[in-house]
Design a protein around this nucleic acid. Sequence first.
DNA 1: CAGGACTTGCAACTGAGTTGCAAGTGGAAA
DNA 2: TTTCCACTTGCAACTCAGTTGCAAGTCCTG
Lengths: 148, 148
Amino acid sequence: MDKKRKTQTLSEALVTRGVRMTRQRKIVLDLLENASGHLDAAAVLEQARRTDPGIDRATVYRTLSLLKRSGLIEELDLLHLGGKGHYYERRETGTHVHIGCVGCGQIVEFPTRLIARLEADIQEITGYKVESTRVEVAGRCPRCAQGQ
Amino acid sequence: MDKKRKTQTLSEALVTRGVRMTRQRKIVLDLLENASGHLDAAAVLEQARRTDPGIDRATVYRTLSLLKRSGLIEELDLLHLGGKGHYYERRETGTHVHIGCVGCGQIVEFPTRLIARLEADIQEITGYKVESTRVEVAGRCPRCAQGQ
DNA sequence: CAGGACTTGCAACTGAGTTGCAAGTGGAAA
DNA sequence: TTTCCACTTGCAACTCAGTTGCAAGTCCTG
């Protein structure tokens, strides 16, 4: 339908919603846009400070919370394999699951159509209007499974 | 194969593993066994204190942590719809997903074979040995979806 | 380009969960 | 049955992610 929305940046998406674009927000949005891997709030803060050393913890948390409330990013805890904080990634519901290795802590993504199917099943059978789905799998990667 | 294991209580399972069974642990295990719905640590503490008012927060947390490490219970955050704590339930991996309504906060369970299939797919394609899977869905229940 | 609503940085706070330690206890061994 | 000690408990202090109130600063609409 709307092809634009898919390639819209986070900044664009927020401005469209009438959100004021500040220097600090731009920094956080840009780095989330280009992030490789899953960042927690501390990592976002650290990277943001490389661009603007004055940026505050509270601002980062407020920006993440704004994005979450706007449905633009997803909050994960990745089964607490790496501590008690949360991780963030651009929302792309129904497309992939996260697998964490309990041995080495590495996180990999696994794309699958089963999530979309699950969401359709839920909608059809329960009448719930699904907004987002989070799938987190704990296991042992081939290397860590080796040594039993 | 082993029919016994299915009907084993949490206490039995722990004793089998050589864990010392104290009065306090028994109380927590019994109430988790008979819990209806999903309990967070505070609720477990409160209910445990009805039996033994002297029981401490730390003991409850240590018992939950022991059960988690033993793979007997699952830790969920139910998408933080009800605060920042965690919820616990007996582990029954691959059988059902949790759906939380963003409107009224109610949590329902949805049994599905798709989880088992997903786990099989992951094992086959990635070589990961799956230990547990957590699926949490956010949506709107029919009633809350009504008023848009 | 002026004004006001919104945002920031700061610092103090919150609340879930953890930890060090002295006193208490389960249960194996005698 | 009694002994004994490694394990467990209660307590209190602590940690750490995340939040909040407020005064100063800033975006952007008119």
